[in-house]
Design a protein around this nucleic acid. Sequence first.
DNA 1: TTTCATAATTGGAACGTTCCAATAAATCGT
DNA 2: ACGATTTATTGGAACGTTCCAATTATGAAA
Lengths: 350, 350
Amino acid sequence: MPQLQSSKGKVTIIEIADAAGVSKSTVSLVLTGRGAVKPETRQHVLQTMDRLGYVYNRGAANLRNAQSRIVGLVLNDLSNPFFAEFAIGVEKVLQMAGYVAFMANTAESVVRQDQVMRMMREHGAGGIILCPALDTRPEHLDWAKAAGTALLVAIRRLPGADTSVVVPENLVGASRVTRHLINLGHERIAFLGGMHSMVVRQERHGGFLAAMEASGRSIDPALNLESMPTRDGGFGAMSAVLSLADRPTAVVCYNDVTAIGAMLAAARHGLVVGRDIAIVGFDDTSEARHVSPALTTVAVDPVGLGERAAALLLKQINDPAAEAESFIGPAHLVIRESCGAYQRALAAAG
Amino acid sequence: MPQLQSSKGKVTIIEIADAAGVSKSTVSLVLTGRGAVKPETRQHVLQTMDRLGYVYNRGAANLRNAQSRIVGLVLNDLSNPFFAEFAIGVEKVLQMAGYVAFMANTAESVVRQDQVMRMMREHGAGGIILCPALDTRPEHLDWAKAAGTALLVAIRRLPGADTSVVVPENLVGASRVTRHLINLGHERIAFLGGMHSMVVRQERHGGFLAAMEASGRSIDPALNLESMPTRDGGFGAMSAVLSLADRPTAVVCYNDVTAIGAMLAAARHGLVVGRDIAIVGFDDTSEARHVSPALTTVAVDPVGLGERAAALLLKQINDPAAEAESFIGPAHLVIRESCGAYQRALAAAG
DNA sequence: TTTCATAATTGGAACGTTCCAATAAATCGT
DNA sequence: ACGATTTATTGGAACGTTCCAATTATGAAA
């Protein structure tokens, strides 16, 4: 029966050494698995540790070698399932590499973001994956270069910062989904949601414009509406667009959340989405699949992006000399019902 | 212009002391703010730290005083928005208290859960908030008592473990929503979703039974169906219940996710939810509000629970002698459309 | 001034670990 | 049975901080 050290929980390597009749160096050796230690000795030490309830003190260890195997994961909006899934991907890879993620949510606050990154540095994080809060300036990240901390920017590209980057193929994805609508015969297509200052919006809107121009569609500035990237934002923007004299027949939304808000607004105006109007989103969150009618959108595989981000960061930690590297994750079209393609096919067949 | 220590990022308290012309003890004093140090000296030291790009080494500090101001947050399912919101509440309170949350996702794996909690201990976490993975046994938590680590179990009660607990009022909540259906005149009511082994289901189902019995309704065992607590699970269970000869007229679901799956199944069978059949959920996730028809459910305020959990844990950390304390969060009925109450009211009026 | 109290500052000894160089023990070839 | 290797083990000096006791500077009271 293991009689755990009761009160203080302060069993050190030295006490283990004494109890096992070896030196602290030997205990350290079995702990790190580095040197050559006789199997029986190792065994004995191991069970002594178990018996006394030893717990490794990483703080003390890091003091010597600064190899903390801690990675910080800074998220701008944990309440968005997209980032939660991204985090899951990151954690999965880190775990396999024996690292541990130190996760924090900034809720789009740069102040909080600074605090949190400082904390992580103080705890000796070897690297940080940052999904930057909305108005993060590149100079907020200067410390990383100076301190030699591996830093990777994810999801939201940060113009002017020369770090590694992992982002989805926003431009191509938006271009694809727009072309899909064009192929379905739509002429007047709106782009809706997100604020102009967001890099992600600029990219997606850029893809939209590219597809429109490539097909010779005219671009009506009245059909480009900003909104907060929330359900309510989407609802509001869609309501605005529907009050226009010359309504669009299709709408490309900044993301799924906005698109779902837009669908609600359309329904409220008595329109049947997928028949009277086409609405498409971006991200393919799990909601997209389950909303009714199911949302046509662009899938970007957040888990995969997370895995990639973690892998890239680890690479950078292990080889600090390596220069910044980028990964642009694929974005593929997921055709469901909200664009009306299915109904159109039915009609064609019938 | 701050000329940051370039390469190693290894500026120590001693270098600051030298550069500022004081002793390392003085620097430590301004760092901790404990002793009395002349304002001008403090100022000078502070700006020297800034100039040299000093970063505090918490590992070294913790070596002496073991006051790590780290709290572990172990979540069983980050992809569930409910837990993401819970985490937000926890973080908010911890942040204000100057603590930092060390968050990890176990994805319902006890093995991972053990790993993660070990990591946290090794990093000197002063306490842990645990949302236990599905088949966590109380003895998995014995180390906490032995090591004197504050431990709080949240959301899923863990029978047999005598830790502090923060959970929603599952029984009362389920009872309330069931009574609501009974008041609307329903006789045959099903309970659907969740696995029998889940404590949360036992509590919610218990509340359901209590309300049914209190109103003299007979309980048909065929109307109690298990399923995985997912959308697909809800879909399957609802399909099963609809193939019964004697269908229920109302369904209480284990949670919102299950309920939304059930709604989909009902629609697929040609039923109009809220008119032909009543469906209610539990949790009031943001989806509940936005699904169509909007889901009648029980709100449990995950952010509030998180805040409470953090506050309780902090209290426990500051007074380790204090005994386990529990908080049962309120659960109130949120009436929307899926239960048909609105339509019924309209009909009565018209 | 001198004398106290109090405010500021300081050197050195921890804290729990890893690393290094050194020693001790086992194994080998001859 | 002897050095020569190789394999196991070890003491002690770091690592960057905090704390304590001791010291020195500052003011106020005498």
